[in-house]
Structure formats: structure tokens, C-alpha cells
């Protein structure tokens, strides 16, 4: 339970970075940290004590494998989520580089002031 709670602390760190920091790259780092925290949380929920990885070997009885393996469903979903996170990050960094080209700054409040 304390592990779940610490993961949520990591999530809140990311949200704090997203809200309170002015620099765009810092904001992107906050989003990446949120990504890590949620992925780790989902995998933690699917863990079975003393579990084996959900991969069948040749000389492994089926019933024993089904009783001892960790939950494979969260792993499949997280595998999807990690790759999507990378794509979204690439889009964010592209927008961020364009903003720097136009305004010559990463500072969010300065960009706000220069508008219009």
C-alpha cells in the first residue's frame, strides 16, 4: 500500500512541475514524470507475490503457470501507453522548438506578454 502511495506522490510531483514552473521544457519534463508514475502504478497493481513473468517455457506445467504468473493484462496496456507517450513527447518538443524559433524564449510568461 505504501508503494501505491509513493507512486502517487511521484505523480503529484509531475503535476506540481506542470503547474508551477514557467519554462516549457520543465513543463514537458513534468508530463514525462506523470507518464512514468501512472505506468508504474498500473504495473504495481498487477503484481502477484513471488510471481513469474507471463512467458511460457517448454517444460512448465500449464496449471502451475496460470497460478503463479503475474497479471499480463496491465502489462499489455502499459506497453501501448509507453509508446504513445513517446509519440506525444515528440509532438510536444516539436511545438516547443517552433515557439522558441518564433519568440526566442522558453519562458511561458514572456511568450504571453509578447502576444498580439
Amino acid at each position: 500500500m505504501i508503494l501505491y502511495f509513493l507512486t502517487l506522490v511521484l505523480f503529484v510531483m509531475g503535476v506540481y512541475c506542470l503547474i508551477a514552473k514557467k519554462n516549457i521544457v520543465k513543463k514537458i519534463i513534468g508530463l514525462v514524470i506523470i507518464d512514468y508514475a501512472i505506468n508504474l502504478f498500473i504495473i504495481l497493481i498487477g503484481y502477484r507475490r513471488d510471481g513469474v513473468a507471463p512467458i511460457l517455457f517448454k517444460d512448465m506445467p500449464m496449471e502451475e503457470f496460470a497460478r503463479h504468473s503475474v497479471d499480463p493484462l496491465p502489462q499489455a496496456l502499459v506497453l501501448t501507453s509507453i509508446v504513445i507517450g513517446l509519440g506525444v513527447l515528440a509532438l510536444q518538443v516539436a511545438i516547443c522548438l517552433r515557439l522558441y524559433e518564433k519568440y526566442k524564449t522558453f519562458n511561458m510568461s514572456e511568450i504571453n506578454r509578447l502576444k498580439g
Binding site: I28, V32, R48, A53, S69, V70, I82, L86, V93
Partner: peptide
């Protein structure tokens, strides 16, 4: 107990570092 995801995470992490 998630070796697949660990491998994916390492690769994606390196790419994230390069992009950032």
C-alpha cells in the same frame, strides 16, 4: 515480472533523452 516492458522502457527512455 515484466521483462518486455523493461526493454521497451529502456529504448523509449533513450529516445526521450535524445529528443529532450
Amino acid at each position: 515480472g515484466a521483462p518486455d516492458i523493461a526493454i521497451t522502457q529502456v529504448v523509449v527512455e533513450i529516445l526521450i533523452l535524445v529528443v529532450l
